[in-house]
Amino acid sequence: MKRKVLTGSLLAMGALLVGVSFFAIAQPLTVLPRMALAPGFVLTDQHGERLTNEDLRGKLVVYTLAYTGCGEACAPINRTMAELAARLDEVDTGGAPVRLVTISVDPERDTPAALRSAAEGLGADGQVWRLASGDPAMVRQVVGGGFEVFYEARDDGTIRFDPAFVVVDGWGITRARNRVGLPDVELLLDQLRLLGNEVRASTGVARFAYEAAHLFSCYAY
């Protein structure tokens, strides 16, 4: 009897070991890491309406930076956002709405009227894609402190900043910081798809598998 119990325990332990090892090595599920809390903020969008991080809770959000006086330097960033906005229906986000937010790093000059004019040119509808600016101290806190993106005004009035596309989940947690050059739209769509997988698996047994994926750092990127 004792021997059977011992054998059974060893077999169970072995099966568990194999299972855990398989999960850790083969990584059948991949997730985006939970990097940090995204910053809290209150900004103003192109319609003069208040935009807070709380308004975006429950939604998947892609943030980027630009400013209206940026000209050609920001064109690739804006094109990426426009293409992303146009292709959002290609990705299954598990029912979570997606929002795009371009934060101006030139809050002194980017009034709601300036943002509205820019938004019209970009095709930013104000619903899915919003352009936002606000109190310079708040912008500094959000962009520099929260998203950890460097920017500074040059003597010629232009603003130097590192392009960044930051993906935040519905809990307000930063899940991806794309800061090396311009990300491919496919990459951003894939990051949204990965978050969508987690949204769909947020209840039931699948939740444990996704928690295990976080535990084992089964990161997609």
């Binding site: 809390l37 995204a38 910053p39 809290g40 903020f41 209150v42 208040r50 807070t52 991080n53 709380e54 809770r57 101290a137 708040m138 806190q141 959000v142 402190g145 929260g146 307000g172 947690i173």
Partner: peptide, 29 residues
């Protein structure tokens, strides 16, 4: 501002009519 932003919390003063004069909108998490 530094503390709240780092914890993903926002707050903003909103003017209201009445004796209070203003209220403060904030995250509820």
């Amino acid at each position: 501002r530094t503390v709240t932003s780092s914890y993903g919390i926002y707050y903003a003063r909103t003017e209201v009519e009445g004796a209070l004069g203003y209220t403060v909108d904030h995250s509820a998490s």
